[in-house]
Structure formats: C-alpha cells, structure tokens
C-alpha cells in the first residue's frame, strides 16, 4: 500500500470487514518499528520484545471495533502496547526463574563502547518500577509531550512529571554509583 492513508480513512477501513486485512497490513507497516522499540525498552530483550509486539498487534486487530476515535489511533495503540508490557513484566516476575532484571543486566554486560553506554542506561532502567520505566521511555527516548503520555497512561500530567523526575534521580544515582565502583 504505497499511498499514505489518512488516519480517519485507516480507522474506517480497519472497521470494515472487506477492507480490514489490507488496512491492518498498512497499520502494521506504519507502526511496527516504533512499537517494537517502545516495547523493547520496557521488557529489555529482543526475544521478549518480539513476543510482546506480536501480542500487541493481535490485540489491536481484535479490538479495533471498540476504538471510538476519542483519542488518536497512535495513542490508543501505544496504550495497548504499554499495558501489554506492564502485564508481561508482572507475569515474568511471577513465573520465571530468570527475572526480567537479570535479563536487563545481561544486556548491560556488553563490551562495545556505544553499546556499553546504552547498557549502563538499560541497567539503570531496570532499577525502576515498570510504570516509572514506561514514563521515562516515553519522555526520554521518544520525547513525548506529557499531555499525550497522560492519555496513554491514564495518569495526570503532574503525576507523570513527578514520576519522570524520580526516574531521572534514580538513574543518575545508579550511574554515579557504578562509576564509583568502576
């Protein structure tokens, strides 16, 4: 589908049985990378991100009829992705011997210089509670305005600002501690 489709038209096509498959193909094409990176920063590993992203898109496909266009389509998609990540993190905590924090540490343990710097950040991120991690990802990596984040997270802008502030402080402290140890 080479032509850029307007959001209104895309949503309308997604809700029409005859055009749904084609429109969904377009949607996946548009959003897969952005959603992948959002999820990847939340869950830590490529393997887990791969699973979660597939679930996100299946939920979008199943739930599109319930999307009522009160928010932007992308905001709605982001909300599903964020919630799917939070659910995945919670399930991982309960079910797996290798916790998500350990896997974040494994990512941090790499040699290449640019990777190592990002690895430090990932290691710091793993210290954060999942929701704070989500807020930090959206603000820091994706430079998302608080208003939009508020729509996605269902939390007030003030609370998000506080959450981001706490996340930054914790990350800063974690990195400082690591430098001292190193």
């Amino acid at each position: 589908m080479g032509v850029v489709m307007e959001e209104k038209e895309l949503v309308s096509n997604l809700k029409n049985v005859e055009t749904k498959q084609k429109a969904f193909q377009h949607l996946v094409h548009l959003y897969k990378e952005r959603i992948y990176w959002h999820v990847r920063r939340m869950v830590g590993t490529h393997e887990d991100a791969d699973d979660v992203v597939q679930n996100v898109f299946i939920k979008i496909f199943k739930g599109i009829d319930n999307f009522n266009s009160q928010s932007k389509l992308y905001t709605w998609i982001y909300r599903i992705a964020t919630n799917e990540c939070l659910t995945f993190i919670e399930k991982s905590k309960r079910n797996q011997s290798s916790s998500i924090e350990e896997r974040f540490d494994a990512i941090a343990d790499v040699d290449a210089q640019p990777e190592r710097i990002l690895g430090q950040l990932m290691s710091a991120l793993r210290q954060l509670p999942p929701k704070q991690r989500a807020v930090f990802n959206m603000k820091y990596f994706e430079e998302m305005p608080y208003r939009k984040m508020s729509e996605i997270m269902g939390t007030s802008e003030g609370a998000l600002k506080a959450s981001f502030h706490h996340a930054k402080s914790k990350i800063k402290q974690h990195i400082l501690d690591n430098i001292k140890i190193g």
Binding site: E47, D50, I58, F61, V110, E115
Partner: peptide, 25 residues
C-alpha cells in the same frame, strides 16, 4: 541474538515480523 540486535535491528527482521503478524491474524 540479543547482542546482535543490541540497539540496531536489521530491516529484514521488521519485514519478517510484519509477515508473521499478518500470518497470525
């Protein structure tokens, strides 16, 4: 694989991901 896909994922992966999602759907 995780190191290989450290912070840059090849476009072939995304093509493959798209194909898998569409097959599942």
């Amino acid at each position: 694989r995780n190191s290989q896909y450290g912070q840059s994922v090849p476009s072939s992966y995304f093509e493959n991901l798209e194909r898998r999602i569409l097959n599942q759907v």
